[in-house]
Design a protein around this nucleic acid. Sequence first.
DNA 1: CAGAGATTGAACGCACCGTCCAACCATAGA
DNA 2: TCTATGGTTGGACGGTGCGTTCAATCTCTG
Lengths: 202, 202
Amino acid sequence: MSTRPVPERLATQLASGASGFAVTFDDVRMEDVAVASGIPRATLYYYFAGKEELLAFVLRTMLDDLEASVAIAQGRARDARGRLAAVVRAQLAHLAANPGASRLLLLNLGRAGRIGAIAAGIDAAFHAPVRQILIQGIEAGDLVALDVEVATTAVYGSVVAVGLQALLSRGGIDVDATAERLIALLWSGIAAPGPEARRARP
Amino acid sequence: MSTRPVPERLATQLASGASGFAVTFDDVRMEDVAVASGIPRATLYYYFAGKEELLAFVLRTMLDDLEASVAIAQGRARDARGRLAAVVRAQLAHLAANPGASRLLLLNLGRAGRIGAIAAGIDAAFHAPVRQILIQGIEAGDLVALDVEVATTAVYGSVVAVGLQALLSRGGIDVDATAERLIALLWSGIAAPGPEARRARP
DNA sequence: CAGAGATTGAACGCACCGTCCAACCATAGA
DNA sequence: TCTATGGTTGGACGGTGCGTTCAATCTCTG
């Protein structure tokens, strides 16, 4: 980044205080961040060029964590289904563990996406792992031949929508149950199993 | 709404001028809307309580159109797959036909969703039709037993993400091709067909 | 033609952002 | 111990865009 290197202490204090219950970038007032984090406003401006850069730092940190978490989870499985399940589960778990930042990011993709580092972070943490699994899965014959970009985006959209929905309406995510259902859906679709069987019904 | 009834002329002029290339609510300045639509700022405030209400009107109008369009499309098919395909296609087509308002809405769900009418409109235009098809499809045995809310949200998320992705990166949507691919994905999932066949591989 | 309501220009106050600066503090090296 | 360097902070300021207000038209309708 173009900004000054951010001390450890600041980073942690921001992570806790910056994105509390905000649903909008405008909900985050610099003065509030200052109070919530215990860092004076002038100091915030000493380290960040503005609110945008500050939130970019917070959100980017969250995305970096997610990227790492996804990479680890994904390495635990061999087959396409297992790896996809691990990735989706890790993503949902991260949304559940960082509800504030997640909400703020996903409900404000317009503001957030215009920050290069954020757009790149979303791709690295959400799209890229899925894309890779799909490509390899198709090559291995585990997956049907499909448009990788469309499928990658569809997986991203469904994970994010389902996670966000849970966060907003239930205030949290039942990660295990939700991940299992979502993965079943992504893997097999919504159709009743066995097209012949269905056609043979009375 | 609590606001004054909006004359036809205003509505059309707003639809064309209000959401142009904006990616953020802040990108839409009242003065700009005034110039773009030819309606003086004071007149805008005469009809709308503020920017939020004005954008709510524009976005809600778009969602109402989509709801109607989806209802018509959905009525053209009988079976679950055909109806779902019709709905998804209509949704993508509407995004393609209203890129400005769609972008603004979907990239700012935080701002937009806090407006009751918008949240309701999203449910009516995106979720409800899918939810109904899923429920009836499960009952009819065309669909596997699944968590309707999760599946509904997943469909919504994938449609919106794929549509938005196309709008942003390609500047438009190839509705037919995209809809077909997306529906295939939702219907059958990503797994290679025939679980036995796959399991039988060396 | 009078009154009601629509329409508009202009000026204002407000909230919050971002900038600036002077003062202070901590500490590393002389 | 002294001092220079750089982090840290409070406080004041200007700018932008929103929303309000009001008086001055304009346009119907009866």
